[in-house]
Amino acid sequence: MLDIDGLDAWYGAAQVLFGLSLKVETGEAVALVGRNGAGKSTTMKALIGLISRRAHRLTLRGADISALPTHVIARLGIGYVPEDRRIFSDLTVLENLDLGRRRRAPGNTITDWSLEAVFDLFPHLAELRHRPGGQMSGGEQQMLAVARALVGNPALLLLDEPSEGVAPIVVEQMTLALTRLKASGLSLLVSEQNAQFCAAICDRAYTIEQGAVHWHGPMAALAQGGRSRPAFGPPG
């Protein structure tokens, strides 16, 4: 699904990623785990084309996307849920979702995400369908951000810190929702500090420090090691 080799990225003149490499197979959920400032969000922004980047290889389903602008990458099948959610606060839930609608890219056989499908995934959003985004809690906004990405019918979904700053019950709901998304065949790349959150969802993990991958392997190995060490870094 996604193949990255030797990815460098910059904010202006400041280089933040240094030769980062990772893969996401079709139907797989992969975690990118690290501290704040390690380069997780930068990786997501580089993949979707929001910042300057260069790579030996950056492909989506075998197609080179390294020189493509963000809107073209999105049309090819990458959905993006940013850390700050970026919902439209003056628009209702339905209006936010309408703006995110997009037909499936050619070759994408994943579930066609209608309004009914996302309301089945997040029933609470159905109750709030006429509420402006700015009058929703952080957890509700996070659900809306994921739902808005889904109605764009991606083949690969990038989620940047989906458990950050939301109540424990929302974290539990998000875990169940992402598990269902993976079961539907959607590929996931999840950026997180919390390896335990990812353990219920992801197959493999990469740890990132100072803009480079320091370890990768089974998610279970990282989560088990996290019981006796911080949630970032390789198992000890």
Results as ranks from 00 to 15, higher is better:
Pro69Glu: 06
Arg227Pro: 03
Thr92Ile: 13
Asp203Lys: 05
Val166Ala: 03
Leu189Trp: 04
Thr70Ile: 03
Gly19Asn: 10
Glu25Met: 10
Leu189His: 03
Leu115Arg: 14
Asp90Lys: 15
Ser21Lys: 03
Ala155Phe: 04
Ala183Leu: 04
Val24Leu: 08
Thr26Met: 06
Glu95Asp: 14
Gln173Asn: 14
Val166Asp: 07
Gln210Glu: 12
Tyr80Arg: 07
Leu99Gln: 13
Arg148Ala: 05
Ala55Glu: 02
Pro230Gly: 03
Phe122His: 08
Ala13Asp: 15
Ile48Glu: 00
Glu127Gln: 15
Glu95Gly: 14
Arg35Ala: 11
Ala14Phe: 12
Val30Ser: 04
Trp113Val: 10
Leu176Phe: 06
Thr175Trp: 04
Glu83Ile: 10
Leu121Ile: 06
Ala177Cys: 06
Thr26Val: 13
Leu176Arg: 13
Tyr206Leu: 00
Gln142Ala: 09
Thr43Trp: 00
Thr43Tyr: 02
Met219Cys: 08
Asp120Met: 11
Gly37Thr: 02
Met44Ala: 12
Gly49Gln: 03
Ala117Leu: 11
Arg61Ser: 05
Val30Met: 05
Ile48Val: 12
Glu172Pro: 10
Phe18His: 12
Asn96Met: 12
Ala212Thr: 09
Pro230Val: 06
Met143Asn: 08
Leu181Glu: 02
Asp203Leu: 02
Leu178Gly: 01
Phe119Tyr: 14
Ser191Lys: 03
Ile51Gln: 06
Arg101His: 12
Ala195Phe: 00
Gly27Asn: 07
Met219Leu: 05
Arg180Trp: 01
Arg61Asn: 12
Gly152Cys: 10
Thr111Asp: 14
His214Thr: 15
Glu164Phe: 05
Gly100Ala: 09
Gly139Thr: 10
Val81Ser: 11
Ile110Gly: 14
Ile73Gln: 03
Glu116Pro: 06
Gly138Glu: 02
Ala74Asp: 05
Gln141Ala: 08
Ala117Arg: 15
Val213Gln: 02
Gly107Ala: 09
Leu159Phe: 02
